[in-house]
């Protein structure tokens, strides 16, 4: 590819991938897991006319701020819940303490535990 193309690549943010080279489209599909539907439902409720707590643009801003490494390693709904959570923390709807405590409780109560996160 030309030099111009390389420059263009450098200036892009990582989510802005239109026109970049990539492999074949993998056409396999998975059924959405219950936790993924829960993420979707949480966002839909937070953005509905009754609440208007998080907009689509705020969700996207949160996803785009995850950074290139996280963006590529995380699955689609992992990016969503990370962004939703960051938005809720920023807006003071929930606090870091509450979240940390509740996550620890849920992890401790789950018989098979929690997967180690990649470093």
């Amino acid at each position: 590819m030309s030099k111009q193309r390389n420059d263009e690549t450098v200036l892009r943010r990582h989510h802005d991938m239109g026109g970049l080279p990539a492999g074949p489209v993998e056409q396999g599909e998975h059924d959405y897991a219950p936790w993924e539907k829960r993420v979707d439902a949480i966002l839909r409720l937070l953005g509905d006319p009754k609440r208007r707590i998080i907009t689509t643009d705020e969700l996207r801003r949160g996803i785009e701020e995850l950074g290139p490494g996280a963006y590529d390693e995380m699955s689609y709904y992992e990016r969503w819940i990370a962004s939703i959570t960051n938005n809720l923390l920023e807006k003071g709807v929930i606090t870091v303490d509450e979240l940390g405590r509740r996550m620890a409780e849920i992890s401790a109560a789950w018989p098979a535990g929690v997967e180690e996160r990649k470093p």
Partner: peptide, 13 residues
């Protein structure tokens, strides 16, 4: 085992 983000999803909800 749950994943970190599954736990987060449960907790946030």
């Amino acid at each position: 085992p749950l994943t970190h983000y599954q736990v987060m999803t449960q907790a946030v909800g």
